[in-house]
């Protein structure tokens, strides 16, 4: 797997927001890479900086973003406005969480699918229309001609998410960023949309960065998993390793908290407590308040990502000096 070239490389990405209470470190020193044709899942609870990570990669965050983003070898931060515009939507596409509000309510579906084609390619209106109808069929919606002419409010959430996928795929991107693409959908539609994404990805050898809090989704589609907690990456590894032998107590907790169908326990396991307030955190393992293995050092020093077996983990439990 390692011989494949990486399409997206995120190095020491930080996105801090200044608020009245102080600086919120929504994303703090996050690094990972997505290889060609690979699906990387970013997992974590609500408010741990997953979406901000995705938005930062697209350059959609209204704050200073530090760190380097290399897309196909080019540093996105160094691109001019025009070049960045040519990359976004064309080589690097994004699907948003809320299909209902991510489409312009007063434009027809067709107009919105045609738009990136007309902007990024020298398509004529007629060719774009033809391609748009193909795309609608590609994402598994029949009656494409009719859908082409309808408005977003006339379609269901699942169909709209398919349309979003069609728009994102219109220019054959090398990489797709999907920010919780299935969260707003019900379970059966979720499965359809995931299947669709996976099939299309395999067909086009497209890389995918999938943001989700749903471990079921991760197990379904991911090759590589990045677990985030309070703006930091705490564990990374292949999907197999993460599910087979989670290292970080938080990852263990996440996996344990997942309900298993047909296996009803009195009460679902929850990780006690909440994600800490991201304002003015002191150097410590941010998870220590909720961790059953918390030691003194966890309250004083921040662990760094270290290779442990086959995955990287940021936890004092696996530091030799502490153990010994």
């Amino acid at each position: 797997m390692s011989e494949r070239a990486s399409v997206l490389e995120v190095k020491h990405l930080s996105a801090h927001f200044e608020t009245e209470q102080g600086i919120v470190r929504a994303v703090d020193d996050v690094s990972f890479s997505v290889k060609e044709g690979e699906t990387v899942c970013v997992v974590g609870e609500s408010g741990c900086g997953k979406s901000v990570t995705a938005m930062s990669v697209m350059g959609l965050v209204q704050t200073d973003v530090k760190g380097d983003l290399f897309f196909k070898g080019k540093n996105l931060a160094e691109l001019s406005r025009g070049d960045l515009r040519r990359v976004r939507g064309n080589d690097l596409a994004m699907i948003f969480q809320e299909p209902m509000s991510s489409l312009n309510p007063v434009l027809t579906i067709g107009e919105q699918i045609m738009e990136p084609l007309l902007v990024h390619h020298p398509y004529s209106k007629k060719q774009a229309r033809h391609k748009a109808i193909e795309l609608i069929e590609l994402v598994g919606i029949g009656r494409a001609e009719q859908i082409f002419k309808s408005y977003p409010h006339q379609l269901s959430g699942g169909m709209l998410q398919r349309i979003m996928i069609a728009i994102a795929l219109s220019c054959d991107p090398d990489m797709l960023i999907a920010d919780e693409p299935t969260t707003a959908l019900d379970v059966t539609i979720q499965a359809q949309v995931l299947d669709l994404l996976r099939t299309l990805q395999e067909e086009r050898n497209m890389s995918m960065l999938l943001i989700t809090h749903d471990l079921g989704v991760v197990a379904e589609v991911a090759d590589f998993v990045v677990v985030m907690y309070a703006g930091k990456v705490i564990e990374t590894g292949t999907v197999h390793d993460i599910f087979a032998s989670p290292k970080h107590p938080y990852t263990k907790g996440l996996l344990y908290a997942k309900p298993v169908l047909g296996n009803r326990t009195k009460k679902l396991y929850t990780i006690p407590g909440q994600v800490p307030n991201l304002v003015d955190l002191t150097p410590s393992c941010y998870f220590h308040e909720r961790c059953e293995h918390a030691m003194d050092i966890c309250r004083e020093k921040m662990p760094t990502l270290k290779l442990e077996d086959r995955q990287h983990v940021a936890c004092w439990l696996y530091e030799k000096e502490v153990k010994g």
Partner: peptide, 11 residues
């Protein structure tokens, strides 16, 4: 969000 999406589309 749809205006954010136009940003993401590179318009």
């Amino acid at each position: 969000e749809f205006m954010l999406a136009t940003d993401a589309l590179g318009l």
